[in-house]
């Protein structure tokens, strides 16, 4: 396997955990493979992990964004086609499948959210379908796509977008934005009052209250994003370890193959479950934003 190119399994795994990064390389950064230092600040693809680290915040994970947006467009196109053909008559197979999904999500939203579901349910559908598709990329063997790309000169490629904390935290941040927007829309100044006057209902303690409430407000999306990232990243590392085992010798082949199958089957459950959890928690947080304490 591809691991043969690496000195040891650690290097193999590390290499597979680096995103394809395009960003602003500051002047004076030490370039990879001992090729001197960068003389100007310029936008470029990072040649290795240390260059990517030097780029700091001003960089994009091209692979994560490409896969995330590509899968998002795929999902949306798929749903859109079904929506265009939707009729109240006898549904076809595609429509039946999509409607099953829609009803499933609508029912879940209804159980949690006691308001007009039309504003929340599309978010839930987007989250579920999109996160599921991004998670699904984990079941693609770890070297199937990155290795051919590497031969073509693309050094790094992570196809499972949800193993990138930027992606999961980005989604969580959007959930936070929606929670705050919805809170302000529903409660107006009551939202600020709620932040300042709970749990201690006196004006003297409002800094304490504000601190506690803000921590509470931020903890929700952070935990939401980190949960998905943690689960997916851990699973990905195990997949990489199993892949490294393939290279360890002919005797380990059956073991590695068995583990690969077992872990992949287990992950069928995990990817659906994590997508579902992400969706339900999104709905729960949005529902909480509308309720008065």
């Amino acid at each position: 396997m591809a691991a043969g190119q690496y000195e040891n399994a650690g290097e193999y795994i590390n290499h597979h955990l680096v995103n394809l990064t395009y960003g602003r390389l500051p002047a004076g950064t030490e370039l990879c493979y001992g090729s001197g230092v960068a003389d100007t600040t310029h936008w470029t693809f990072a040649g290795c992990a240390s260059e990517a680290a030097a780029m700091g915040f001003m960089a994009f994970h091209v692979d994560s964004l490409m896969w995330a947006i590509g899968l998002g467009i795929f999902v949306m196109f798929f749903l859109y086609r079904a929506a265009q053909r939707a009729s109240a008559g006898v549904p076809g197979k595609l429509q039946g499948f999509i409607e099953m999904l829609v009803e499933f999500i609508n029912n879940n939203v209804k159980e949690v959210f006691h308001g007009r579901t039309a504003s929340i349910a599309p978010i839930a559908l987007t989250v579920f379908a999109w996160v599921f598709m991004m998670n699904l990329m984990k079941l693609v063997p770890v070297d199937l796509i990155p290795y051919p790309l590497e031969l073509m000169g693309v050094e790094y490629q992570k196809i499972a977008a949800t193993t990138d904390p930027n992606v999961t935290l980005g989604m969580a941040a959007f959930v936070l934005i929606m929670v705050v927007t919805l809170s302000i829309k529903v409660k107006g100044w009551g939202f600020v009052k709620e932040l300042c006057l709970t749990p201690f209902n006196t004006w003297f303690l409002f800094p304490v209250n504000l601190f506690l409430e803000l921590v509470g407000l931020l903890a929700k999306p952070v935990s939401l994003g980190l949960r998905l990232f943690g689960n997916m990243f851990a699973g990905e590392v195990i997949f990489l370890l199993i892949a490294a085992l393939f290279a360890a010798g002919i005797f380990f082949l059956p073991l590695a193959a068995g583990l690969q199958v077992l872990w992949a089957i287990f992950h069928i459950l995990v990817i659906v479950l994590q997508a579902f959890i992400f969706m339900i928690l999104t709905v729960v947080y949005l529902a909480m934003a509308q309720e008065d304490h």
Binding site: G23, A52, L79, S119, P165, N166, L169, G170, M171
Partner: peptide, 25 residues
């Protein structure tokens, strides 16, 4: 690394949610 991907993802998510709420749901 924590970087602009985060921002890109927020924007992508927002667009997909808008699309879904407008044309799919």
């Amino acid at each position: 690394n924590f970087n602009l991907t985060f921002v890109g993802q927020i924007i992508a998510f927002a667009i997909f949610v808008w699309f879904c709420a407008k044309f799919v749901w």
